[in-house]
């Protein structure tokens, strides 16, 4: 009887482990990074961006800001429920649930739990700008040009 109990417990344990592994492997199938989802995106020349303006790049859902000495890029995806934020005179506003963000992307009001995400920018040898949508940074991290 004791041996039978042991075998049963062993069988249950082993099949649970096997089930867990199969489950994880199975569900990982549905959350992979897809080919073609390139995260380093090219934006164009510096001169394409007017000074002191947040330019909306529709294709990648980001705003690029240029001032007299630098550029930086901020995500246009609201951190609340993923709507696309719109530019206002002194910040960003999400039309879906009314979150307001300041110019530096920090939450001023509304249900947004976190600030807007800033992405690292770099300049390619040919002079074009590139933004890395995998590299998250802060509002103070600008790409300074001379």
């Amino acid at each position: 009887m004791k041996r039978r109990l042991f075998v049963r417990k062993l069988a249950i344990t082993l099949s649970s482990i096997a089930g867990a592994i199969i489950g994880i492997v199975f569900f990982r199938q549905f959350s992979h990074k897809r080919a073609g989802s390139v995260k380093q995106v090219r934006l164009g020349e510096l001169s394409d961006f007017p000074v002191d303006t947040y330019t909306f790049i529709e294709e990648h859902n980001i705003f690029v800001y240029r001032d007299h000495e630098s550029v930086k890029a901020v995500s246009a995806v609201c951190t609340h429920l993923g709507c696309t934020v719109q530019r206002t005179t002194d910040g960003f506003e999400c039309p879906c649930h009314g979150s307001y963000y300041a110019n530096d992307g920090s939450v001023i009001s509304g249900p947004a739990p976190t600030d807007l995400v800033w992405y690292k920018m770099s300049r390619l040898p040919d002079g074009r700008l590139m933004v890395d949508l995998d590299a998250v940074t802060g509002p103070d991290d600008k790409l300074i040009f001379t």
Partner: peptide
């Protein structure tokens, strides 16, 4: 994808949850 409906609402039977989510 770049111009959300304003206000963007989920299907009506989830709007109770969306209200809480806000």
């Amino acid at each position: 994808p770049s111009h959300p409906e304003n206000p963007a609402k989920s299907p009506w039977y989830f709007l109770g949850i969306q209200e809480l989510v806000s």
